[in-house]
Nucleic acid binder design. Sequence first.
DNA 1: TCTAGGAGTTTGATGAGTCAAACATTCCGC
DNA 2: GCGGAATGTTTGACTCATCAAACTCCTAGA
Lengths: 221, 221
Amino acid sequence: MATEAVENYLKAILTLSQESDAADATITRIAAVVGVTPSTATTMVKRLDRAGLARYERYGAVRLTAKGRRAASDVLRRHRIVELFLVQIVGLDWSEVHAEAERLEHAISPRLLDRLDEMLGRPRSDPHGDPIPDADGRSDHARPGPITACAPGAHAAVARVLDQGAEFLQFLARAGLTPGTRVAVVAIDSIAGSITLKPEGRTALTLSLPVAQRILVTPAF
Amino acid sequence: MATEAVENYLKAILTLSQESDAADATITRIAAVVGVTPSTATTMVKRLDRAGLARYERYGAVRLTAKGRRAASDVLRRHRIVELFLVQIVGLDWSEVHAEAERLEHAISPRLLDRLDEMLGRPRSDPHGDPIPDADGRSDHARPGPITACAPGAHAAVARVLDQGAEFLQFLARAGLTPGTRVAVVAIDSIAGSITLKPEGRTALTLSLPVAQRILVTPAF
DNA sequence: TCTAGGAGTTTGATGAGTCAAACATTCCGC
DNA sequence: GCGGAATGTTTGACTCATCAAACTCCTAGA
Ligand SMILES: [Mn+2]
Ligand SMILES: [Mn+2]
Ligand SMILES: [Mn+2]
Ligand SMILES: [Mn+2]
């Protein structure tokens, strides 16, 4: 089994390379996600290479091997199932489960994971709308787009939120912008850099475009 | 926060010194419980001393300080609440939760722990009958005794099982010897070194005395 | 094309955690 | 009370994970 640190790096590399839009998994970015200095990340990435989990060449982007991708996928699966379990069964708030899952993801056995998965009815996404890779490491490919790409007047359903920050999540919940909610795009003001949204059954609110970009939606009718 | 290793040592020292009957927490015993060599345990116990968590003198028994006892108590509380949660809510078998809790006990936040404790109704003992220290670190003092100390013909209730081994626990469950069950002591043969028990509603069975000693009971009527 | 500053690397250090092997002490059984 | 077995300690070595500081490389803009 990989150490806790190795699992965290793998997860960081996977999310950087496949979740962020075309952003390479560079040393500095990996370091930022994991929360270490770039020199530390360089050292660790070399270890991942030696272990056959990643490919690394000096000054180049880091890529996972099939083995590394598989291992990273497993960590992501554990993380997200744990998050959903904590919200659904234990009753924690969606703003606090990320930090909790960050540690628990390393301590869950396959047996326990499967039990949680079963209790939750084999879910496909976590409380933030992040897709849960299946037990074979395959992940959903349907990618929702940022609400800022919607035309004014359009309706959409919140699919996913790309920011795990507790305050942001609490703000969204108060505004009614949680995954599954229908929302109308009232107006987009590119000069002011703002977007006005009206979640179904709630009062309208205005967000800055960079912030709103972290809210992904699927078109609705 | 203490590291995972430190927490494991603290827990080992606490259980050795207060759970086992008058058995000192010696280096070799600590090493055996934690699963390391005695030389490693020596090194670590010195660190615990430096950190103010234990008192250590060469060739002497290791004792926890108040601070160390408190920290160890917290680990034990987490361990046992997690075990009960896994049996009661998640539905795992009492023979598999110990290994699981051994890792999870280091990854549970105070917030999550309290939530689990609340879901379980503030329990006082875990699936094996081990007492759960309260949030202030205090632990039950009522100590049940080994069933081997009962007089032949006596009735008792299983209170606690001192062996976390999966096979032993599965055996006990099949025999009907789980905490809370009433059991009659049919006979004790000190020559053969065996004891015959009849759990309520089950068929009688014979155990060796050393094995039976790990089953603690409270007298019943 | 040159170059400044950002990105990445190397080096040297540290602490945690571990082991094996050699050594020291303690404690029992005779 | 002695000597060997059990127990505990020290030493030297190793991996993992991390940082700061000094260095190197790369590239985008002047
Ligand atoms: Mn993590
Ligand atoms: Mn999530
Ligand atoms: Mn543990
Ligand atoms: Mn237990």
